[in-house]
Nucleic acid binder design. Structure first.
Length: 478
RNA sequence: GGGCCCGUAGCUCAAUGGUCAGAGCAGAGCGCUCAUAACGCUUUGGUUGCAGGUUCGAGUCCUGCCGGGCCUACCA
């Protein structure tokens, strides 16, 4: 029996997720977890909400609520929806948990002790009216290239030219519209990823079985320009994990918090501690510390492709740089995007199908089945209502529904109202099943969701009796 | 601009460099009735985006082009 640790990319707190988010991480992770539980393996499946960062603060302000209240409410909403979709997390935590505060500060302290943190003074745009520093994309103005008047500080959406905020003509805050902006100097901590570049590259090169989507993105970042760059891990925000060096204060960093992408992956670990503290488990280090029993754990992460750089580089840099025996990921399953009727799903534009709407239309299993059988593994895939309707009506209602109806009515007509006692199946009938079972047991725990085709576990080209087993494990058969 | 991914039947998708490129749906034909206006069987449909190259052999590897998408480090 193997021990399998599974994490799904943690969904951001600022709203209800759409089906594209769901199929890109949580849903396939859930299928994978259920499959290995059903095969008798020991599984720990963790997810959480990702609660820090500028968008969370702004969403709370827009809702007219204190950010911690807003996040608590949205956590409950997301928890209810994940339950509604029957996502079988062993724990659904929060990146704002005390456990994550402690652990994030611990990692930062260890990295500093190992000389992997640099303090960098930099200039950044500050909005007086908003009383906050503005990330580049929260500054709007007129594009110097094409004249578009709603260009963002990082890029003009109209002409796609990349910009620096200081390039903008008549810059203003995208939050309040205020033009009372000034450039202020601020000091931040940087994770010296460049110092770990060669170790990260060697580690990634050793992962020859990862999806090309995962490794190609990682290698791009490792080799682009001057190679892997250091990354700022602190921000001038109010809501977040206060910058501390382990248990100690961090002189010069008062009032600052860690960057959301520094603390979010650490929540994978902290979530296991939350799982124990919630009384659902007994020993979380057994899953995460290779010196405390986790050396035989196989750890698999699920995420959309936009998350890959942080999971292949930043988070491993944090773990390796700590010098402590934390468990590194063994396999990163990344997904492309699910599109909606010819375009992208869009949370900000309300375009697409959202988790709450979906459940109000049909029960979760309809969605689970369709989404998993159309998971965008090799390229972006497409949701259309026509396809969804036709697939559900034909495959679920007609084929499966009719089959169940037929079997139950057949039994009733032959055996009456009583369920007949079971018997033993003959050896001849069992033989194909045994062959199938043997192949399943020898399969490597690597996720692949394509409903047809010959990827997977078959090592023999000999035709075999019975029906192919190489279907997605959720394919309803009885 | 740079990098990467993708392009396969009307649609949604498969295919460790190796039989005749396969499934489901849609279309056509036949059949069945234990069953949901169902179901089963058969079947039509392909210059694998285009043009070259490597190879005994290319959907797969290489080069160029066309088209779509993603990323490009201060959104997450």
């Amino acid at each position: 029996m193997a021990r399998i640790l599974i994490t799904s990319a943690i969904p951001y707190i600022n709203g209800i997720k759409h089906l594209g988010n769901l199929v890109g991480s949580q849903l396939p992770a859930d299928l994978f977890a259920r499959y290995f539980r059903a095969r008798g393996h020991e599984v720990l499946f963790l997810c959480a909400t990702d609660e820090h960062g500028t968008p969370a603060e702004l969403a709370a302000a827009k809702a007219g609520k204190p950010v911690e209240v807003y996040c608590a409410e949205m956590w409950a909403v997301q928890k209810e929806l994940s339950d509604g979709f029957r996502l079988s997390f062993d724990h659904f935590g929060r990146s704002s948990s005390p456990q994550n505060h402690r652990l994030t500060q611990h990692f930062a302290g260890r990295l500093a002790e190992n000389g992997l943190i640099a303090e960098v003074a930099e200039k950044q745009v500050f909005s007086v009216a908003d009383n906050r520093f503005l990330p580049d994309r929260y500054i709007e103005g007129t594009c110097p290239n094409c004249g578009y008047d709603r260009a963002r500080g990082d890029q003009c959406e109209n002409c796609t030219k990349q910009l620096d905020p200081t390039d903008l003509i008549n810059p203003r805050s995208a939050i309040s519209g205020s033009t009372d902006l000034e450039v202020r100097e601020t000091k931040h901590l940087y994770l010296r990823q460049s110092a770990l570049r060669d170790r990260l590259e060697a580690w990634i090169d050793s992962k020859t079985d990862w999806p090309i989507l995962t490794t190609s993105i990682a290698k791009k970042w490792l080799n682009d320009g001057d190679g892997l760059q250091d990354r700022g891990i602190t921000r001038d925000l109010h809501w977040g994990i206060p910058v501390r060096k382990g248990d100690a204060p961090w002189p010069g960093m008062e009032g600052k918090v860690f960057y959301v992408w520094f603390d979010a992956p650490i929540e994978y670990i902290a979530c296991a501690a939350e799982w124990v503290d919630a009384g659902k488990g007994t020993d979380w280090e057994r899953w995460w510390r290779t010196d405390k029993g986790a050396d035989d754990v196989r750890y698999i992460q699920f995420m959309g492709k936009d998350n890959v750089p942080f999971h292949t580089l930043s988070f491993p840099a944090t773990i390796i740089g700590s010098g402590e025996p934390w468990k590194l990921v063994d396999y990163i399953k990344s997904f492309n995007y699910l599109n909606y009727d010819g375009g992208q799903f869009s949370t900000s534009q309300g375009r697409g199908v959202f988790m709450d709407q979906a459940l109000s239309i049909l029960p979760a299993d309809y969605w689970r089945w369709w989404l998993l059988s159309h998971a965008p593994e090799n390229s972006d895939s497409e949701f259309t209502w026509e396809n969804f309707q036709a697939s559900v009506n034909k495959d679920l209602a007609d084929v499966l529904g009719n089959f169940v109806s037929r079997v139950t009515k057949f039994c009733r007509s032959k055996y009456g109202e009583e369920v007949p006692a079971g018997g033993r199946t003959g050896d001849r009938a069992c033989a194909p099943t045994r062959a199938t079972w043997k192949r399943w047991r020898s399969a490597r725990p690597r996720p692949s969701f394509a409903p047809s085709g010959s990827r997977g576990t078959n090592t023999s080209s000999r035709p075999r009796p019975g029906r192919s087993s190489r279907k997605t494990p959720t394919a309803p058969r009885r």
